[in-house]
Write a protein that binds this DNA or RNA. Sequence first.
RNA 1: GGGCCCGUGGUCUAGCGGUUAUGACACCUCGCUUACACCGAGUUGAUCGUGGGUUCGAUUCCCACCGGGCCCA
Length: 841
Amino acid sequence: MPRRRAGPVRITHSGPVSNMPSPRLNDKRWSIDLEKRIQEEHYADEEVYSKRYGFNPDSGKEIFVIDTPPPYPSGTWHIGAVAQYSMIDVIARSQRLLGKEVKFPWGVDRNGINVEFTVEKNTKRKMKTYDRAEFLKLCEETIEEFTQSMRNTARRVGLSMDFANEYLTDAPNYRMVTQTIFTELFKRGAIVEDLRPNIYDPVEGTTIADAEVERLQRRTKLVDVKWRTEDGEELIISTTRPELICACGIVVVHPDDERYQHLIGKKAMLPIPVEGREISVEIATHPSVKSEFGSGILMVCSFGDQNDVAVFRELGLTPFQAIDLDGCMTDIAGPFASMKVSEARKAVIEYLESEDKIYQIVEKEQEVPVSERGKNPVEIILLKEWYVRQTHMQDRISELSDEIEFHPPRNKQFLLDWMENISIDWPISRRRWYHTEIPIWYADNGSKIICAPSGMYVQPWCQSPPDNSEVLDRETREVLGTYSELKKDLNDIVGEEKVFDTWMDSSNSNLFVSGYLNDMDTFEKAFPTAIRPQGKEIVRTWLYYTLLKSALLLDKPGFKHVWIDGLGMDPWGRKMSKSLGNGIDADSVLECGAGGRTGSWRVKGPDKSVQLKANKIGSECFRLWKACDAQVGDDFQINPEEIEAKYFGVLTKLFNVARFASQFENPEHLDTVPADLSVEDRWILAEFASTMEKVEKGWAELDIYTATQALKTFGTGVLPSHWLEMSKSRLYDDDINAAWTIHRIVRDLMAALSPVCPFFTHHISNTLYGESAVDVREFPVRTPNDDELRALTNAIEEFNGATWRTKKESGLSLNAPISGIEIPDELSEFKSILTQMHKLE
RNA sequence: GGGCCCGUGGUCUAGCGGUUAUGACACCUCGCUUACACCGAGUUGAUCGUGGGUUCGAUUCCCACCGGGCCCA
């Protein structure tokens, strides 16, 4: 089955080509090279660019601030994310088209552990072996390199962001906002310090939050250990963590488990030696025990896992600290103290074997909680950390989020589900470096806290407190005075060394881009931020934490709209990942077709690898695909072959319609509808009016799919297939009304489509009309509608179709004269034009 | 193990209680026609995952199951 012609047959027309007017669109067709040329021009002149896409809070227009997700720079940008950003750009451009004053900021999220890892990897040296200032400098240089490639890709996909006012989350003006909000919330008691069990990554030496834990399948040993009760009865207890026996606080069985009723209340002797604690524990009942698992007897260790923590809390047991901050066993482990956790596990197993205290060891697949960033098994450790109180806020956040419009509405569920699961406060302090510093100092043996003043970025690990800092009592948070007043009496001033979780920064992005602290006049007008566009995978972090912050700080919903898109998946609907080998690089798709180079991708499928090939895609086709192919909100499959096959032809079609139009002179007054339009012109203008009504509504409701579909259907359907076929000869005969109609439609169509295909429409409208579609700041005025004419559309299409079919069946070419065809009565107004069009005799 | 989402011609997709079930791509047939062969016209092709229920009526609502995905334990 040949899919393509082996070689295109070149057609030479014998008609009178020489006296044809020449099209003002020089290029014969839309191409990726043309696209790139236009794009480069577009971004080259910064002054023109800023005038076009900059933000002027005093324009008097309705302000529409987009809380763009600041991407985290890390080498390559995921194609699914790039597709999402292109749709955010469609929102920005369509809101401008509707006359809003749009702020579409370009921010880069640069804080965090990723860049620290990169520097460690590049220099083969652990962070904590560096001087802190030296390490921060290396991080900054490294992140800047990655940032540059993202800036390029952002332009290549056509984002109309305010690049001149780029914000960086690691810059002083951004970190200042994070620090000031922290101080405010601390003074109000919304942020507290406490000694609590925390999830801890011993390899990286830092606390992490619930949201940062993921699970990996690993093979582990399930060890059945022989314990004895105080009166000598043998018990088998299964565990994957024998090294934690030293931290065992209680042994439990299910209350209904008849096998073990006689044990309840007795003592179980720990099977390994311990130091500094009693050598036996009580046997009790707990409903969380699964009787069918192992022997049905469970040892509960302080901080073995989250369930253990819950049992300890419930039964009021005092926890033991078995693991220290370096991931080593503490003194209570007796002979195993100071060993790394994994060494201790081996040593304990050896000891138990030598003592004949092992019943059996089974290798087992188990899910191990690891840190998302470092993939290290995490431990639960009791630590003094900073927390944002959140458990008491769930009802209020829920109420506030009812004021937010979600797109699509069903994706709100991701937020509600996550909020259901929240049971502990949010630990925000981290023992890392390339993050925003916690802006406090301790004094007088830690009994007083010095808080940095509002509006200032500070680095307490290397700076003294500024004079206008405030001094507070650490317990009561009572303000005692300013630092300058009190400093002569303060002793042992120590700067906090810990930093914030990066979500503590990211969760003020809406406040920051709306002007909070930096431009409070604008903020008053712009908050709640118009829209938060984001992927569904970060609802539980970015969206949730942002709503929490806005609720705590201002008791307001953070946004008017939240727009949640799905994830970009591979052609089989699976998540793209390095390990599956099914990733598709964004730049390769955007560059596909440039300089005549084809794109090819080897992608691993579920059964075998496939080779995907495409000749031309580029940003306009890519954007059109994402806008047109499916409703926003569900996961979407990315297949370059399909993108090209389904959507490049749409561009070609529209380009040719415009190119055809460009042979005919522009009528002078495109805004004034001529009084003597013929019926077919009034008909197509009515169709166009109805299309534009759908489009305007679509843009207003952030319904990209409906708006783009309407444009595509009209622009590649009824306009060229029916009206243009009807009107060709009138156009060649210099009919001024036909020319007015085609130009009015092309001009307005370009404006309406400009949010999706900015460079394509910019080029066409600039060439034909001397003004760019991307500069239109008011949705085009509707052409006259006429329901009666529009009601004839089906009849027209059917009549044309039937006539073409008849010609085909009679073996006639489509432009051959034909006799014996009757025009139906309802189309009597169209009689002469249809007769002419089909050469009816 | 729990939660959520999805399952529509070969492929992708629209649909939100009544439609001859939308559109695109692919397939097939025909066509060199003064925008476009990277084209045009025309066909073929779907018991809307399966089984129950609610309803006068279900692709649409409910339940169960099967399959896929995501998130969480």
